[in-house]
Design a protein around this nucleic acid. Structure first.
Lengths: 156, 156
DNA sequence: ATAATATAGTCAAAGTAGGTCAAAAGAGGT
DNA sequence: ACCTCTTTTGACCTACTTTGACTATATTAT
């Protein structure tokens, strides 16, 4: 049984397909539709529609309130790589790193196979490291791979 | 009386026969079915479905969690991956790791871009680690990527 | 203005599910 | 009996999901 979150995510993405990379929805209606707590919607947004994923959320409360999800217009791939590189910084959680990989794939900068390969490189290794170091290592590896991608773009 | 582990192993293998060398199962359900501790399942996986045995495991926790077991096919490139995987072991020098990447590329298992991406993941990170750990980390990362390649060959 | 109503946001707790590890139990060999 | 290897279990851990109580903000009615 797939978790509701996945279903809601797919639902929203389907909507975005139709409407030019942008949807506006009512939190309560959506929650009603899926028979779940309204905050469930927030959870889905927070875990699957973050800026790392390439989305921006706008919303308003009160009467006539809404939630708008906008797909960030992609600049050139090179700019994007630069931005992401900086975002990674010197420490990043494994979960955030995976979000960035999803982004790279959805932007067509890497294909699915490459994304999985990169994810494999980031997998929590059997090397027992203190948590603080792990995030640093994750960042270092990811940055290194991003640089490689950027470099190849130049060469091509 | 045959140990439970053998029975569970056989059960899983039978499942894999039906479903194209690939099963997805719920740890708790399986444990329930065999009236054993859930961790028993992990034991079976750890002792009978390792990469050395030709299997790769993926899993997810939380609601909707699962364990997927994928059998690595045994055509020639797969055998090579298997061999290389064993060669890597639990510790490998950076230089040796790069040689292995060269090999993977010359065998046509990865293309140049992928080889470079993998090399980037293995680049000595700016994380200060004792040399012994670095080689272990290098091995872990490389093994992880090799498994990913093996898995994808199966899926393709 | 103020109050009522309609939304959305936050956060922590509960729920679900797999992972790890070490100790206890069992089986076989000497 | 004793040692060793394998199996089995349970306590504790980590990760992901779902919910609900409480909060914040906007609109509408009085």
């Amino acid at each position: 049984m797939k978790p509701l979150s996945d279903t809601i995510e797919a639902f929203i993405k389907a909507l975005m397909e139709e409407e030019d990379s942008q949807v506006e929805l009512k939190r309560n209606e959506l929650a009603e539709h899926f028979q779940c707590a309204p905050s469930q919607i927030n959870y889905v947004l927070a875990t699957r529609f973050t800026p790392d994923h390439g989305y921006v959320i706008e919303s308003r409360r009160g009467g006539g309130g809404y939630i708008r999800i906008v797909r960030i217009a992609s600049s050139t791939p090179d700019d994007l790589l630069k931005t992401i590189y900086q975002r990674v910084g010197t420490s990043i959680s494994h979960a955030d790193a995976l979000r960035i990989l999803a982004r790279l794939q959805s932007e067509g900068i890497v294909n699915e196979r490459e994304a999985h390969l990169m994810a494999a490189a980031l997998a929590p290794q059997a090397v027992p490291l203190p948590l603080s170091l792990k995030d640093a290592l994750c960042a270092g590896t990811l940055r290194s791979m991003i640089l490689e991608l950027a470099k190849r773009r130049k060469e091509a």
